[in-house]
């Protein structure tokens, strides 16, 4: 969620590189977040190859900000 800012979509490879994850872990993570309604997935084609783009939803961004806020409160980071 940290990588998915407001109003932008990242393709699968860019997202994987940004969070330094492997394909399998990222796929599972995206599926889970999509089920929760935190991200939306768009499928398309790059030439003849299928590609996936991911973007955050308003619900997802709010949940993430609440989570970050809680982490800051715990660590006293403000």
């Amino acid at each position: 969620m940290a990588a998915l800012g407001d109003d932008i979509e990242l393709d699968f490879a860019s997202l994987r590189d940004a969070i330094e994850a492997d394909d399998s872990a990222l796929s599972k993570g995206i599926s889970h977040l999509e089920k929760l309604g935190y991200v939306k997935v768009t499928k398309g084609y790059v030439g003849a190859r299928p590609r996936t783009w991911v973007r955050s939803t308003t619900k997802g961004r709010r949940a993430f900000e609440r989570h970050v806020g809680a982490l800051r409160a715990i660590t006293g980071a403000g």
Partner: peptide
Amino acid sequence: ESSEAQLLRDVDAIRARTAPLAP
């Protein structure tokens, strides 16, 4: 470092990596 602080550091690092990816 607590695990919460580590998570916050990870959030900042990811945001730093994605900031240059302006569309």
